[in-house]
Design a protein around this nucleic acid. Structure first.
Lengths: 200, 200
DNA sequence: CCAGAAGCTGACCGATCGGTCAGCTACCGT
DNA sequence: ACGGTAGCTGACCGATCGGTCAGCTTCTGG
């Protein structure tokens, strides 16, 4: 049998290691996180880590691939859509993705350029595709800056920026989601707001 | 004599190493930058680096201290001022500081939380002071998010985000300064714009 | 009852890490 | 002419890095 209930501990170790590793990669950087440290934190030996994952790189890949795949899906949809809902969908998707995959986003967005790994190259390619699309359709520099500040700022707020707040004053995820949607909408959706032709 | 012209090569080595090191720290991370690599890039030996700087940590400190001191000055002025020009000054100062010290800001803002060094602690304390001041005077979550997105986004755009743009399409620093001032002003200065009481 | 796979580990490997040290060269003021 | 110092280097150190490997347990299907 072993159709159910059995793998209670089965997949757990690998997932646990993946989770601890992602935390470490996001908070201390990929280069700054040793397999030994990750193993210690998870309560395993370094050999165990390398039993479940062929290499440090494979561990990183397993940890951030889902986030990258989801980001690629969001991007594809954005590039396909042409309707008026286009940007609204992007804002919603991005906020949801950021909240669900903070650590992973922190890794491939902030450390991405410095890591020479296939999985990171794939993530960078996706980010670059988004940047190129934005650069194409928004000719003014201020418009491009708005986009970069919005996405980079949102990512910063949920990852690195978090450590600068007082712990007892951290808003809940629900509050954050709504506030982020509000702010990103202001920045990215030129709804009948006060931005005449000032740019460019 | 030796009152002039002599130190042409004198201070050069130390400054050159500092500059190369800062580039490396910003692009590859502190943990990911080895003294050997920095020395190679600068055309010196590793021993030479440690002759000019007592340790890797001292090298980092020399590289980013000026930026931190300047940031502290900007912060002190912001915390002192009470006039209506307060936020406008902050925007101007921050944009100027970001453009002048991109790499240093990238180090202590994005890698800051993960490095346990005195100089980084000092930088983190300053950022935290700013965050606390913002949290105090802006009670709505959206307002705090606006602040975090603005500052974090601007920093992202000038550092990590830069590598995602096509090289031949990078705006000049002057264009960036103006665009950043525009966008940050929109985000941080509640001038008679369409933000009624929607927040909180 | 037992063969074998899964899970996990310590011992070990070469490479590289940050850092020390003795010594070399070149130039300085006296 | 010479002692001292500033600049720089290669050799070397212990620690730690990512990764390999043989072997130990524990469980399971036949």
């Amino acid at each position: 049998m072993s159709a159910d209930a059995a793998p209670i501990t089965r997949v757990r170790a690998a997932d646990e290691l993946k989770h601890v590793a992602l935390e470490q990669f996001a908070s201390a950087g990929f280069a700054g996180s040793s397999l030994q440290h990750i193993a210690d934190r998870a309560g395993y030996s370094k050999s165990s880590v390398l039993y479940h994952y062929a290499s440090k790189e494979a561990l990183l890949e397993a940890a951030i691939e889902p986030a990258i795949a989801e980001f690629e899906a969001v991007l594809d949809e954005f590039l396909t859509n042409r309707g008026s809902e286009r940007r609204r969908r992007l804002v919603d998707d991005v906020v949801r993705l950021l909240l669900a995959h903070r650590e992973a986003v922190h890794v491939f967005l902030f450390q991405g350029p410095s890591l020479d790994l296939p999985i990171i190259a794939r993530a960078n390619a996706a980010v670059r595709r988004l940047a190129a699309a934005i650069h194409e359709e928004r000719e003014s520099v201020a418009e491009q800056v708005r986009f970069g500040v919005a996405l980079g700022g949102a990512a910063f707020l949920l990852t690195a920026g978090r450590s600068f707040a007082e712990e007892d004053a951290l808003p809940s995820d629900d509050e954050l989601r709504e506030a982020l949607r509000t702010v990103l909408t202001e920045l990215l959706i030129p709804s009948g707001r006060h931005r005449p032709t000032s740019d460019h």
